[in-house]
């Protein structure tokens, strides 16, 4: 998983395809970073992502649940039209913050 930590903010650079296979790695590694580095904000960066299925939605929802308990937030940036459609259809767009630029 490609990521960057700045203070209590974790940016996850998602891979080209977010499916069950890649989502498992992201889930495990993200949780470890969130715990160890006292993360409150997670930014999912979709700049390279062209494919995502419901496994990716599960990862975002799971991180949202964790961070909400800690008083944090989840953001999504650089999502293309397809990714926005997936985020909207699943209802995730309602609980996270979607923005065009960081």
């Amino acid at each position: 998983m490609d990521y960057h930590v700045e203070e209590n903010c974790l940016t996850i650079f998602l891979p080209g395809e977010v499916d069950h296979c890649s989502a498992e790695t992201i889930r495990k590694e993200a949780d470890e970073v969130i715990r160890k580095k006292h993360i409150r904000y997670v930014i999912f960066d979709f700049a390279d992502t062209k494919f995502m299925d419901s496994s990716g939605i599960g990862v975002i929802m799971g991180r949202y649940r964790t961070l909400r308990l800690l008083g944090g937030e989840v953001w999504a940036v650089h999502a293309n039209e397809r990714m926005k459609k997936i985020l909207n259809m699943s209802g995730v767009a309602k609980i996270i913050r979607l923005c065009e630029e960081e």
Binding site: A23, S54, S55, I57, G58, M61, G62, M89, S90
Partner: peptide, 8 residues
């Protein structure tokens, strides 16, 4: 962390 959205 399955979302339950697969069939949907």
């Amino acid at each position: 962390d399955r979302s339950g959205m697969g069939f949907a």
